[in-house]
Design a protein around this nucleic acid. Structure first.
Lengths: 142, 142
DNA sequence: GCTTGAACCTCTAGCAACTAGAACATTTAG
DNA sequence: CTAAATGTTCTAGTTGCTAGAGGTTCAAGC
């Protein structure tokens, strides 16, 4: 039986985060000692590892909730899990495209900075006048 | 003189967002009508456009605050604006690297999904066992 | 058995950058 | 003059945690 601290160490998760996952129903309410401290078993280690791994891959918690649900029902179709993963891939690709445009613009901005005073600073100039931009960048909402 | 709604339309900003920027001191307190409604002039259009454009390039509001400050003082060195932009570029490149690793892993996951039931779903399997991963992906904190 | 210190407990509030809604006031066009 | 559109303030919600206050429990050493 593991304390919350050792579970955290085993899975690379902060203690607060584990309690947060419990609060939002992503982790089950574990058993407690007489004194009221949480104690975890192997199933919880697996579940938390799953969650953390999915988070590292950028899945939002709601998607992870669905994936856990699918994982708990081995007879359901794999199709749903597949489509969640595809959705996530789309998100990642969308964000990559946006970042690519941003990088282009930022590089151009910096490249042309001559180093005088701000009156003729290229960085500020570009920010002042969007029409100087070549790419269609929009990071807001990414 | 523009109402807050027309300023929003002109700059592609939601009304609430403009008020939020005012609240955190990024936009100045504008003049008001007798009835208490905000009215804006050209200077505010420029300032808000600057903010929005910087946001589109992913600059955090605190960086934008500094950039606006520099923009307001034309005799200060361009160097600071330049280094803020360079910092932003670093961030963008870091995030791109992470996303690249994520994409690789997600693609591999989906590619190998055979389409049966979840008992032998590759997506879930990969999430369960990190050791199946080839790349060092970590999107958390990105 | 007792003490001590690390780790645990709950609860609240904070982060970024907005967004949404309630409940009410003002402005403007017909 | 009325009605609709737009404005006002205030509060709370979003995502995914993180930090702190103030108190309790556990395990080890003596």
């Amino acid at each position: 039986m593991l304390t919350i601290g050792s579970l955290g160490k085993k899975t690379g998760t902060k203690v607060q985060t584990i309690r947060y996952y419990e609060q939002i129903g992503l982790m089950p309410e574990p058993g407690r000692t007489e004194g009221g401290q949480r104690r975890y078993g192997d199933a919880e280690v697996d579940r938390l590892s799953f969650i953390r791994h999915a988070r590292q891959l950028g899945f939002p918690l709601e998607a992870i909730r669905e994936l856990l649900d699918l994982s708990d029902n081995p007879d359901r179709s794999c199709h749903e899990a597949d489509s969640i993963a595809r959705r996530q891939l789309k998100q990642v690709e969308l964000r990559m495209d946006r970042l690519k445009a941003l990088r282009t613009e930022l590089k151009r901005m910096i490249h042309e900075c001559s180093g005088g005073n701000t009156a003729d600073c290229k960085v500020l100039e570009v920010l002042r006048d969007h029409s100087e931009c070549l790419t269609d960048h929009n990071e807001i909402g990414a």
